[in-house]
C-alpha cells in the first residue's frame, strides 16, 4: 500500500493511503479528542463531533475521523476554529451528563475527563443549561452496571456487541434528545441475550458501563 506523507501540527508524519487523519495523528503521538470513531469499523459514524481539525485549503474545520490523508496535506489540530467546535461539542455533552466524577468508578480513566483537560474545558460547564434526563440505572446484569445518564451516545458498545461479537443486545432507540442506548423493548440487560462478556464495558469511554466490584 502506498505511503502518504503529511504534516500534522508542524510534524511530518506518514500514513497509509486511504487512512483517516484521526488515526494518522494518533499513530504518531498527536492526540485529537474522539469518542465515536472505531478503527475496525469500515466507516466512522462521525457522531461525537469532537475530532474537528483544520486542513489547509479547506474553508471549514473537518472531522478527522472522516477525512482521508492526502499527499502534502497540512493539518492543524489546534486551530481556533477547530477548537471552538470541539469545545462547544464537549460542553454540550457535559451539559447533558451527570458529571458525578467523585462517585464514578470511571473517575481517572474517563475519556471525558481526558478530553476536557486537553481542550481546557471545565467539567462543570456554565455556558449551557444543565439538561438531564434522569433515566433509570440498569444494574440487573451480574457483571456490569449501565447508567444511561453518563452515556455520550458514542456507540462503541453498540458496535462491539453487534458488529464485532455479532450478539446485538445493545442498540440505539428513539430520536433527538431522547436517543438512547438500550436493549430491545428496553428490557433489563439480565433478561436480554447478553452473554456477560463485558466487552461493551471495556469499549465504553465514560462511566456509563462499569464493572460491578468483585
Amino acid at each position: 500500500m502506498k505511503t502518504i506523507s503529511l504534516t500534522i501540527d508542524g510534524k511530518k508524519v506518514t500514513a497509509s493511503e486511504g487512512e483517516k487523519v484521526l488515526w494518522a495523528a494518533l499513530d504518531n503521538g498527536i492526540y485529537i479528542p474522539n469518542l465515536c470513531a472505531l478503527r475496525d469499523a469500515s466507516e466512522s459514524p462521525a457522531a461525537c463531533c469532537l475530532c474537528f481539525v483544520e486542513v489547509e485549503g479547506k474553508s471549514q474545520p473537518v472531522t478527522a475521523c472522516t477525512e482521508r490523508v492526502e499527499q502534502g496535506m497540512v493539518v492543524n489540530t489546534r486551530s481556533p476554529g477547530a477548537l471552538r467546535l470541539a469545545r462547544t461539542a464537549l460542553e454540550l455533552l457535559l451539559a447533558s451528563n451527570v458529571v458525578d466524577c467523585a462517585h464514578c468508578p470511571a473517575n481517572g480513566s474517563c475519556e471525558l475527563q481526558k478530553i476536557a483537560h486537553h481542550l481546557g474545558v471545565k467539567l462543570k460547564t456554565r455556558r449551557f443549561r444543565k439538561l438531564l434526563r434522569e433515566l433509570p440505572v440498569d444494574s440487573s446484569s451480574p457483571v456490569f452496571i449501565y447508567d444511561p445518564n453518563k452515556c455520550v451516545l458514542c456507540g462503541r458498545c453498540v458496535w462491539v456487541c453487534r458488529e464485532r461479537l455479532g450478539i446485538g443486545v445493545l442498540g440505539f432507540a428513539h430520536r433527538g434528545f431522547e436517543r438512547l442506548v438500550t436493549t430491545f423493548a428496553d428490557e433489563p440487560i439480565a433478561e436480554s441475550r447478553c452473554r456477560e462478556c463485558g466487552e461493551c464495558v471495556v469499549a465504553c469511554p465514560t462511566g456509563a458501563l462499569t464493572f460491578k466490584e468483585q
Binding site: A47, L93, L131, R175
Partner: peptide
C-alpha cells in the same frame, strides 16, 4: 439524535 450538535 446521532450527532452531538444537532441532538444537544
Amino acid at each position: 439524535g446521532k450527532c452531538t450538535f444537532c441532538r444537544l
